[in-house]
Computed example of a mutant assay.
Amino acid sequence: MKPAFLAELNALLAPLTDPGRAAGMRAYMRNQFDYLGIGTPQRRAAAKPLLKTFKGIGAQRLLEYARELWRLPEREYQYIALDLLALHWKELKPADIAALLVLAQDKSWWDTVDALAGIIGDVLRHDHEFMDDALKHENMWVRRIAILHQLGWRDKTDEQRLFAYALYCAHEKEFFIQKAIGWALRDYARHAPETIRAFTLHNKTRLAPLTYREANKHL
């Protein structure tokens, strides 16, 4: 990362830091990460003009900057890395997904992992490259990304793959997997409510109670 970039970024963030708020944010995330104490709207408003200047630098450099931001201790820097990738996702290709999955396995928690799932979904653009393998990955967060990568695809959703992924992981006891399956099914239910109702009823004994409740929350 160019030192000038980090200096400019820190100059934008410095007036917004709030130690009191940082303590609350850290506690909310189970004391896993340090924080500067900057809320999402304020962070994005401050950093976006700078991040927009990265347009056209290409996938390799975008990922380099994201990795450098990921190494910094405060959680806001990981969020800024995600904002950078989300802003310029059109410069990424399916071949870059492997690098995004590496990020997902570092400082992993639902906040960064779910944002990466959204970016990967945008990059895939209704394809599924790498996701079948990701579903079988030993890392639970990578499996969560595979389950969630079709969020928001509506009629472009691969229904058979959605259901196959759900059943493949249905036996898992991990909360974040059970929740992800329910979320993915609930999201598709907005487009195909009767299909989800029928699928969850038919597989009620295989799906975790949490998954079933989440999938049917708005049906």
Rank of each mutant, 00 (worst) to 15 (best):
Glu76Lys: 04
Ala47Pro: 05
His149Trp: 05
Ala189Ser: 15
Trp141Asn: 02
Tyr77His: 04
Leu103Lys: 13
Tyr65Asn: 06
Ile80Gln: 00
Gln60Trp: 03
Gly121Phe: 00
Ile181Met: 05
Leu84Gln: 12
Arg206Thr: 07
Pro19Phe: 02
Leu82Arg: 08
Asn203Asp: 01
Ala184Pro: 07
Ala189Cys: 13
Leu167Phe: 07
Ala164Ile: 09
Tyr168Met: 06
Lys48Asn: 11
Ala59Pro: 03
Ala146Leu: 12
Gln78Lys: 00
Leu87Asp: 04
Phe176His: 12
Asn203Trp: 07
Ile119His: 02
Arg61His: 15
Ala98Asp: 04
Thr211Met: 00
Ala22Cys: 02
Ala95Tyr: 01
Arg26Thr: 04
Pro209Glu: 04
Ala115Gly: 13
Leu201Gly: 09
Gly121Thr: 05
Gln32Cys: 08
Ala115Lys: 13
Pro3His: 02
Thr200His: 07
Pro41Ile: 14
Gln32Ser: 07
Asn216Pro: 04
Leu82Cys: 15
Thr157Tyr: 10
Gln178Arg: 15
Lys136Ala: 15
Leu210Val: 04
Ala27His: 13
Pro3Lys: 14
Glu68Asp: 13
Lys136Trp: 08
Asp111Arg: 08
Leu84Trp: 10
Phe130Leu: 08
Ala4Thr: 12
Leu101Trp: 09
Met29Ser: 10
Leu124Arg: 07
His191Ser: 15
Gly56Gln: 00
Pro193Gln: 06
Ala59Asp: 05
Lys156Arg: 14
Tyr65Pro: 00
Arg71Cys: 14
Ala95Gln: 07
Ile196Ser: 01
Asp187Gly: 05
Lys179His: 13
Lys156Ile: 03
Lys52Ile: 07
His202Trp: 08
Leu92Pro: 02
Lys179Arg: 09
Gln78Glu: 10
Leu62Val: 11
Thr112Tyr: 06
Thr40Ala: 14
Ala59Ile: 01
Leu63Ala: 13
Pro94Leu: 13
Arg125Glu: 09
Leu36Met: 03
Ala14His: 10
His218Phe: 13
His137Phe: 09
Leu103Phe: 15
Asp114Trp: 06
Pro49Gly: 08
Leu207His: 04
Ala170Gln: 00
Gly152Trp: 10
Lys107Cys: 14
Ala86Lys: 00
Glu64Ile: 14
Asp111Ile: 11
Leu16Pro: 06
Asp96Pro: 00
Asp34Met: 13
Pro193Gly: 07
Arg143Glu: 14
Phe199Lys: 02
Ile196Lys: 01
Ala4Arg: 10
Ala104Trp: 08
Ile80Pro: 09
Pro19Cys: 04
Thr17Asp: 04
Lys204His: 03
Glu194Asp: 08
Leu201Asp: 12
Met131Asp: 02
Arg186Trp: 02
Leu51Tyr: 05
Ala81Gly: 15
Ala47Met: 02
Phe163His: 13
Lys93Asp: 03
Ala47Trp: 01
His191Cys: 11
Val142Gln: 11
Glu8His: 14
Lys90Pro: 04
Asp158Tyr: 08
Tyr165Phe: 15
Arg43Ala: 04
Ile80His: 03
Met131Ala: 02
Glu194Gln: 11
Leu201Met: 10
Ala192His: 06
Leu9His: 05
Leu87Phe: 11
Gly37Ser: 00
Val102Asp: 14
Asp127Ala: 09
Ile57Gly: 05
Glu214Ala: 13
Ala198Lys: 08
His191Arg: 09
Ala7Cys: 08
Leu151Gln: 11
Asp34Ala: 15
Leu36Trp: 01
Ile145Lys: 11
Ala7Tyr: 09
Ile196Cys: 03
Glu8Thr: 15
Asp18Lys: 04
